[in-house]
Amino acid sequence: MPQLHLLNKVADHPRFTQCLNQTHAGDSIALTESGVLALPTGIDWPEGVVIYALSADLEARGLGPLELPPFVHVIGYEQLVDLTLSTDKVVCW
């Protein structure tokens, strides 16, 4: 069953690693708040997982297109709402 993970922690928070460990192929991760700061760090994202990032949180933290890996989907709150409804289960970290 595909899941959406709402991840708002910085990459060195214990929950960030826990989230990646609980993510399976077919799942999605939506990065919000400080979660978006993981994008320019070049960490290994789990395979087969779609990564979204909230544009307002990227913008606030000075992360422009040049800082982002090419596979990231930048979304607004409207799309975040759609995402939470398009998977059967949402896990909030």
């Binding site: 069953m1 929950r15 460990n21 609980q22 289960k89 896990v91 909030c92 970290w93």
Partner: peptide, 13 residues
């Protein structure tokens, strides 16, 4: 614990 969460509809932290 990696398979545990899949057995629940609501995982709360």
């Amino acid at each position: 614990t990696s398979d545990l969460e899949a057995r629940f509809t609501d995982v709360v932290r």
